[in-house]
Amino acid sequence: MPKQSPVPDELTQPFFDACNEDRLVVQRCNECTELDGLLMLQHPPSEECRRCGPHGTLEWHEVSGRGRIQSYVTMYDTPVASLQEDQPFNIAVVELWEDKNALFLSHLPGTPVREVPMGAEVRVVFEVTPANGQKVAEWEVVGD
């Protein structure tokens, strides 16, 4: 599906650079991780930790690329022109295996619409977008 190509900015450049190297990175808050002994991750990225605000120090952290389908819809009337010919299509919310607060969207390539297995395990793949060649994170259902 011909996705719009993201144009990275200062905040998002490390994420998209990693995508171009087929690596998945997300932000980790060192203060929250140290305080609670939990891996405190967040995605999409932000200038501040969503939990502790400006107190946290955020750094990029490579993750496994595994997750699960939190929810999904079937899109029949998207406002995005480049995707309209491919309707209907899936839009799933994927939560990262390491921290369900790190969320991604996915078309679930290979999974027919209305056959999305809610809660199923997924793994990341990297897809080239046509306008500028920028890769984005996509997700495929892990087979039996």
């Binding site: 996705k3 719009q4 190509s5 993201p6 144009v7 990275p8 900015d9 998002t12 999409p44 939190q70 929810s71 999904y72 819809v73 899109m75 009337d77 998207t78 406002p79 995005v80 022109a81 480049s82 995707l83 299509f89 839009i91 919310v93 969207l105 996915s106 078309h107 809610m118 977008t129 046509p130 306008a131 500028n132 984005v136």
Partner: peptide, 29 residues
């Protein structure tokens, strides 16, 4: 929504074709 490139916070949503009701669709699912 008709351009080939997307910038800003929309980079996390537009490439997947999200509409206004998509968020509530996920929640209701």
């Amino acid at each position: 929504n008709a351009r080939p490139l997307v910038e800003g916070p929309a980079v996390w949503r537009n490439p997947w074709g999200v509409s206004a009701a998509t968020g509530d669709g996920w929640t209701f699912q």
